[in-house]
Computed example of a mutant assay.
Amino acid sequence: MLSYLAATLPDGIPAPARLLALQCALRMDDTLHVRLPRGLLRSLRLDAPELWRDLERVHWLRTSPMSTRSVTIGELFDSGLLSQAPARPDRRRAADWALRADLPAKVGKAGGQQRLASVYLAAHTDTWGRGLAEPDRMARACGLQPAEIHCLMHQLTATGALGSWRCCPYTGDLHWAL
């Protein structure tokens, strides 16, 4: 889903709005509607109205006037999401996983870029805690310029969210250990 959103969301969508889009895409029903409890949004620090407006501005979703103080309801306009695997129960589990990957103790207070990057890194890490990715693909998924990836990786290492990382001198690929 991260790759799909990287391809469909335009440049300029900030990382917190991308995290919101990820949760919406993983929690939507088969009619492209999503109901997100405000408590969940507050815990993710995604309850800011400007994040919803960012996604509305690019015609990715529309918030419903039926939203209440306890739940935000949205309608997604990207019908291509329906063709994305996995099925809804698996997407809901993935949404819960992304919630946990987004909020480890060391990244939880970090900004949106670091939080989205932690989800990306966790999604591309094997069972031994090691990962590999092309920097330009990671940059696109995280809404960054490729030149910003090295700085972001240094920040994640400094917070302890990332054990180590390096850039392969031959291929340019990023290698990391959580």
Rank of each mutant, 00 (worst) to 15 (best):
residue 131 G to W: 00
residue 9 L to F: 07
residue 123 A to T: 07
residue 164 S to E: 15
residue 124 H to N: 15
residue 171 T to D: 07
residue 28 M to P: 01
residue 167 C to E: 13
residue 109 K to I: 01
residue 9 L to Q: 02
residue 121 L to N: 07
residue 85 A to H: 11
residue 113 Q to Y: 01
residue 75 E to M: 13
residue 147 A to W: 10
residue 60 W to I: 03
residue 126 D to P: 03
residue 8 T to P: 02
residue 7 A to G: 12
residue 161 A to P: 05
residue 18 R to S: 04
residue 97 W to I: 05
residue 152 L to M: 10
residue 24 C to D: 00
residue 53 R to T: 11
residue 88 R to G: 03
residue 101 A to F: 02
residue 39 G to W: 08
residue 27 R to T: 03
residue 40 L to D: 00
residue 152 L to F: 04
residue 141 A to R: 02
residue 67 S to M: 00
residue 173 D to P: 00
residue 176 W to V: 01
residue 83 S to K: 12
residue 166 R to V: 09
residue 123 A to I: 03
residue 116 L to M: 08
residue 23 Q to I: 06
residue 109 K to A: 15
residue 153 M to V: 04
residue 70 S to E: 15
residue 30 D to V: 04
residue 37 P to Q: 14
residue 28 M to I: 08
residue 17 A to F: 02
residue 66 M to F: 14
residue 20 L to S: 06
residue 167 C to M: 14
residue 178 L to E: 10
residue 9 L to I: 00
residue 7 A to C: 10
residue 112 G to A: 03
residue 5 L to D: 02
residue 162 L to G: 04
residue 62 R to I: 03
residue 128 W to A: 15
residue 164 S to M: 12
residue 73 I to R: 15
residue 60 W to M: 05
residue 70 S to H: 13
residue 43 S to N: 14
residue 26 L to Y: 04
residue 16 P to I: 01
residue 52 W to E: 06
residue 141 A to C: 14
residue 146 P to N: 06
residue 158 A to L: 13
residue 105 A to S: 12
residue 14 P to I: 05
residue 121 L to T: 05
residue 118 S to K: 09
residue 59 H to F: 00
residue 87 A to L: 14
residue 97 W to T: 09
residue 84 Q to P: 03
residue 48 A to M: 08
residue 135 P to H: 05
residue 135 P to N: 02
residue 159 T to E: 07
residue 89 P to K: 08
residue 102 D to G: 06
residue 11 D to H: 10
residue 119 V to Y: 07
residue 134 E to N: 13
residue 74 G to E: 02
residue 139 A to T: 01
residue 97 W to H: 11
residue 99 L to M: 11
residue 84 Q to W: 06
residue 50 E to H: 15
residue 13 I to R: 00
residue 38 R to E: 12
residue 144 L to F: 03
residue 3 S to H: 12
residue 76 L to W: 03
residue 129 G to S: 08
residue 112 G to T: 03
residue 73 I to Y: 13
residue 169 P to S: 12
residue 62 R to K: 12
residue 140 R to K: 14
residue 169 P to F: 11
residue 172 G to E: 08
residue 61 L to G: 03
residue 19 L to G: 02
residue 153 M to L: 15
residue 144 L to M: 12
residue 150 H to F: 09
residue 170 Y to N: 10
residue 30 D to Y: 08
residue 84 Q to A: 12
residue 91 R to Q: 10
residue 38 R to Y: 06
residue 100 R to V: 08
residue 153 M to A: 10
residue 171 T to M: 09
residue 30 D to F: 09
residue 37 P to Y: 10
residue 91 R to L: 10
residue 131 G to M: 02
residue 177 A to M: 09
residue 170 Y to G: 11
residue 22 L to C: 05
residue 106 K to F: 02
residue 80 G to S: 06
residue 44 L to M: 15
residue 154 H to T: 14
residue 108 G to S: 14
residue 140 R to M: 05
residue 177 A to I: 01
residue 157 T to G: 12
residue 163 G to H: 13
residue 131 G to Y: 00
residue 49 P to Q: 14
residue 172 G to W: 08
residue 118 S to D: 04
residue 163 G to A: 13
residue 98 A to Q: 07
residue 174 L to F: 06
residue 57 R to L: 09
residue 15 A to S: 08
residue 12 G to K: 07
residue 68 T to N: 10
residue 41 L to G: 05
residue 21 A to S: 07
residue 50 E to P: 00
residue 172 G to K: 07
residue 139 A to N: 00
residue 143 G to V: 00
residue 176 W to R: 01
